[in-house]
Design a protein around this nucleic acid. Structure first.
Lengths: 158, 158
DNA sequence: ATGTATGCAAACCATTTGCAATGAC
DNA sequence: GTCATTGCAAATGGTTTGCATACAT
């Protein structure tokens, strides 16, 4: 139950494709494989780079299209764009287990596991909303950027 | 303490501009006024429309520029882009009092006040992060879209 | 007088779209 | 053979940028 493997997910995806009368193409196979190789969030650019290392050439349009199908199949999740306007993707099985702390300065994403205390309260917040899928994002300034800014402020005082 | 008025905020903004050796232009005055007239979130497009109703013509570039200055002055807050890639703005004084429930289907934003129970737990989550500013977003599917989808699914079964 | 602000139009760039060619079934 | 899928190149659209002009100080 920990982590579904690449092969497990291909089986799930295959079943979905068959059910919907969609085709099991080589491209879809390879894309899922590379998606699974990420440990966490990834952007379209990161995926494109990784695809370049395989012997399969896959066009941009196909990448976008396939990720969309993976989302419909409930295998992937799409995070809202960051301030740089790029969308991040993540395996759904990972996404629901943590809160995202996103730095508005450097776009770094830190993940924090739900605290058991937080959970029940969120459940009440989410009544009549979502249920199918939701994730929590908290935007702010990470420790690193905060320190950097303080150092700069310090210098200016002198 | 409820809601700062337009005039209060112009005073704050003026002080900020003077401190930073920036200019108190007519455009900045009018933009702040129109920004204050929104009740909640607004997008650049909504602001552009509203500006059309005033007798001042203000260019796109100036709107973007001014909103950026208002953010630096800590009067405004910029929400991350939604799935349509448009950024939402909000008066900072409003933003920290609620959680945003954002529908990934229709982009509707529903606001929910922090529950007193949720707050202390969040404080611990946020340690070593932000503090200066943060807001909570929960993405999912709103009741309305959920119902619509269920109705469609129902029809297909028949 | 000085240099910040503005307006315009062009540039950016992640994502989407249209369409002819390909290939899974 | 049929129709979903792919690849390419062009389009989209919110936001940003460069630069000449205007104007607050």
């Amino acid at each position: 139950m920990e982590h579904k493997t690449n092969e497990d997910l291909w089986e799930v995806f295959s079943a979905y494709l068959t059910e919907k009368n969609l085709r099991r193409t080589q491209e879809r196979r390879v894309i899922l494989q590379e998606v699974c190789a990420f440990d966490g969030h990834f952007s379209m650019d990161m995926l494109r780079l990784r695809m370049n290392d395989t012997r399969y050439h896959v066009s941009r349009a196909t990448l976008y299209n396939t990720l969309e199908v993976l989302i419909e199949a409930k295998i992937l999740v799409k995070h809202p764009p960051n301030f740089n306007r790029t969308v991040q993707y993540e395996l759904r099985s990972r996404a629901e287990t943590h809160i995202h702390l996103i730095c508005t300065r450097c776009d770094a994403i830190r993940e924090v596991r739900y605290s058991s205390l937080l959970m029940p309260n969120l459940r009440s917040v989410k009544s009549n909303f979502a249920a199918e899928y939701s994730t929590i994002y908290i935007y702010g300034i990470c420790g690193r950027c905060r320190n950097k800014e303080q150092r700069i402020a310090q210098k200016q005082k002198k």
